[in-house]
Simulated scan of single mutants.
Amino acid sequence: MRIAIANDMFMAVEALRRIVVKIPDYKLAWVAYDGAEAVSKCAADTPDLILMDVLMPSMDGVEATRHIMSQSPCAIVMVTASVNRYAAKVFEAMDYGALDAINTPILGDDGLLNKITAIARLIGKSSHR
């Protein structure tokens, strides 16, 4: 499964990248550092899943999700520092088609990996996990 990361924080990108590469069947498709870049990269190379930050410069993850789902739809999970704190934005993104949301993981936390595995099954890109 090809997974993209859209996040403006280097440490979050690195934590997400490390989770993605843990499973041999998962490949990092690309990284975008703001919503506009994510929309552009997705139009040129649509991944199976995008791990989308909620708050980013130039275009936030909600607006990027809206554009992506109308132009080059794919599975999107909102990844944010606090799902509870940004619940209104998370629900808005889900209204545009995001499948789920999770707090930005810390290293060693398998919550996101479990969520990616469940989405892989849902979209027919299941791994042997």
Score class of each variant (00 low, 15 high):
V79Q: 02
N7S: 07
K89G: 08
R129Q: 08
M56A: 05
M9F: 09
K125W: 06
A38C: 11
D48W: 01
V39L: 09
R129Y: 14
A101T: 05
T65A: 08
A98E: 00
V39S: 03
A6P: 00
Y96L: 08
V79A: 02
G97D: 11
A44N: 12
R129D: 09
K125H: 15
A87F: 13
I116W: 00
S82R: 09
S126V: 15
T46Q: 12
T65W: 04
A43W: 07
T46H: 06
P57G: 03
V13Q: 14
W30I: 05
R18Q: 12
I76V: 15
T117Y: 11
L112H: 12
K125A: 15
S126T: 13
L112C: 00
I102M: 05
L112I: 00
S127Y: 08
P57K: 01
P105C: 01
T65F: 07
G35C: 06
A81E: 14
G35E: 11
P105E: 12
S70F: 11
G124W: 13
Y86H: 15
Y26M: 09
F10C: 07
G61E: 07
N7W: 00
S58Q: 10
D95G: 15
V21D: 10
L28A: 07
M69K: 03
V54M: 05
R66W: 05
K27R: 14
L16A: 06
K89D: 15
D100G: 07
G108P: 10
D48G: 13
K22W: 11
D110V: 08
P73T: 04
Y26L: 12
I106V: 15
R66E: 05
I123V: 14
S82T: 12
V39D: 00
I102D: 10
R17T: 13
I123R: 01
P105Q: 08
L107S: 14
A98N: 02
S58V: 14
A98W: 11
A44I: 08
P47I: 05
S72P: 12
A4I: 06
I50C: 01
A93Q: 03
V20G: 06
D48F: 03
R18V: 06
A29N: 03
A81G: 10
L112S: 00
W30A: 04
D100V: 04
I23A: 08
S70D: 09
A64P: 09
R66D: 03
V79L: 02
L113R: 13
L51Q: 01
A120P: 08
A32F: 07
I5K: 00
M69R: 01
S40H: 12
E14T: 07
E37I: 09
N114K: 13
L51N: 02
K115A: 04
M69T: 02
Y26G: 08
I5C: 04
A118N: 10
R17S: 12
P57T: 03
D95L: 07
V20D: 10
A4E: 00
